[in-house]
Design a protein around this nucleic acid. Structure first.
Lengths: 345, 345
DNA sequence: ATTAGCACTCCAAAACAATGAGTGCTAATA
DNA sequence: TATTAGCACTCATTGTTTTGGAGTGCTAAT
């Protein structure tokens, strides 16, 4: 049996209607709402075929049809058109990027709120992070007879301080000399690039002051790991309760829990985008985690402020409004990629 | 009509039973479960009296009684005994404080999780903050011809860096001199203490370098405000869905929303503890926010690491287990007050 | 190939009955 | 006088039955 033009049109009508109403769609509904120029009986025949093809299912023998995961998949891959985004929405997005934030993180936090507000689905946005965090600048500062303050600038504007206790006293001049050597060797390096060879080389250069290197490297390593740690901003969780599928608390509980539990989010989201794709959609059972087997998950990559990137994920019922949501995400990521944080330190 | 011994005993039985079962309590239930040595008819008479006193109510004419807010209030104020905390629980709490955390905030975050786990209620813990943040140490560091790095240590271990652009070039020697003056004048000061008098005085001392003071003060002021900003860690929100009162999603939605929305939490919680009390309990309609008019809110103050304090709030249904929860909170705040963060920088 | 028509299915809502937990009141009792 | 046994009554809950209607599949006519 072939999936001809007309079957596709009917499938599309069923999915669009079901996305709107959450009610199984019957043949007469299609005749009434979508002008196809054919009778309900014909549609019934076509629907039986679509069911044989596994694209729609019947909750029970005498009800209308609802799309199967495979039906949604076909819809998403081949049918769904670009949703329209109204001007007011675009306005709201642009306004967000015009506001002044003292950190990118705060911008992202607000963005997460805006996305959940616009989509009406729970939204998770991961903190933007550089592809590779590099050491930009190191400064050692004499504080006390036995303590030295290490100032590290990582990437562009993340500045961290740490106190190092030393066994011996160091003058500021000596520290400046050491600082010079360290900066020369470590500048623009990523964590991976600091290998044994490099360390040996630096130690050699430092001569009798090599003892300072170990605590410095340990601190830097911790800092970079901390920065590269994924972090998430979630918004609009309770939106999910508005969809009849999740009206009953027990249905929503697992979902809310999993979104709330930051430690699970990396596996949930991060893995989706290892590859080269910019957007990944998981529909229903395509999801690995059983807690969201009744949901669809859209995850897309964003890039902001030059080299920083992160992920935006949206969780909704299977019958989520894929086209509008995808268009919205596209608009947002486009605006984000234009955004450059000014006033960097 | 007087509230004699026996009436109180019956009230207590009703409340205890209702807390356990969430079902209206009838006279025969009391006879069966709580040995009072009187018949159900007598209890019925007493119950009618308790209802006249406004301590219990009947959901409908032929059902058992449930406690009114006033009933709970009397119970909490006068009847509820110290709940028992089992050893395992105390063990878990102590273990938490034994773990090593690189920041107090992380400890509090875990604590919030533990409290919600132990109480089975949603829990909000506010970030610990000093009563008065004071400036501990300032350092100016020449970075570039027209930029100076300001390092500020506030309280004990919060270190911040900010870059200041200057119109003129300053040598490190000059900066050290300025640093000396600033530290001398600002050391141990709270934000309130930096008044116009002090500023004039410092400007006078700085002489021709007074231009540097304005950006420094602005940065410090921002930093302290940022630190004193309340921040909250919430846990176990979905616990609320396990209570039959909130089984239906729409009942839980407002509550979850309000807990999720960090911007509302200050008004919700903070205001409760302006005064001298260490614990405040709001039962049902005693709450000002209509979203939690069907909940009880317990808020208590904690002190940790010497001079830092914050709040722990627990939200549950009216019929929450007051005695156990209060005892648990007491145990926790006691353990917290013993806790001192070692290895401060 | 399409469709009108019909018998059939089955969910959802409405109507109804039965159950039982609970009450208040009264009259008997200690 | 306080307590209690007993009884009539109330009403939420639960289960059963009925009904309506939306929907289907199939067949025969177009």
């Amino acid at each position: 049996m072939k999936l001809d033009e007309r079957k596709i049109k009917i499938l599309e009508a069923i999915i669009n209607d079901y996305i709107k109403t959450a009610e199984p769609v019957g043949s007469r509904t299609i005749v009434k709402k979508y002008d196809m120029g054919i009778s309900s009986a014909t549609i019934r025949n076509e629907m039986a075929d679509l069911e044989d093809l596994g694209l729609i299912v019947q909750p029970h023998t005498s009800s209308g049809r609802i799309p199967s995961d495979e039906g949604y998949r076909l819809y998403v891959d081949q049918l769904s058109k670009n949703g329209k985004i109204d001007k007011k929405t675009i306005q709201q997005i642009r306004e967000l990027f015009k506001r002044s934030y003292n950190s990118l993180d705060n911008l992202i936090k607000d963005l997460s709120g805006l996305v959940s507000y616009l989509t009406k689905y729970p939204t998770i946005v991961s903190k933007p992070h550089s592809k590779k965090s590099t050491i930009k600048y190191i400064q050692l500062l004499s504080i006390d007879i036995d303590s030295v303050l290490l100032i590290t600038v990582i990437n562009r504007d993340v500045v961290k301080n740490n106190l190092i206790k030393t066994d011996f006293s160091l003058t500021q001049e000596t520290l400046d000399m050491i600082t010079g050597i360290l900066n020369q060797s470590l500048d623009e390096r990523t964590l991976e690039e600091i290998n044994l060879d490099l360390i040996a080389n630096v130690k050699h250069k430092l001569g009798k002051y090599m003892a300072i290197l170990d605590p410095v490297l340990e601190i830097i390593s911790n800092l970079i790991n901390e920065i590269d740690q994924p972090e998430y901003y979630t918004s609009g969780i309770t939106n999910i309760l508005d969809y009849p599928e999740f009206n009953d608390a027990s249905a929503a509980k697992d979902l809310i829990d999993i979104i709330q539990d930051n430690s699970l989010l990396p596996q949930l989201i991060q893995q989706e985008l290892n590859g080269e794709k910019d957007v990944v959609i998981r529909i229903g059972k395509e999801n690995e985690y059983k807690e969201i087997k009744d949901c669809s998950l859209i995850t897309c990559r964003y890039e902001i402020d030059g080299d920083r990137q992160g992920l935006i994920s949206i969780i909704g019922p299977r019958r989520m409004d894929y086209s509008t949501t995808l268009s919205l995400l596209q608009t947002i990521t486009e605006e984000m990629s234009k955004y450059v944080k000014e006033g960097k330190t």
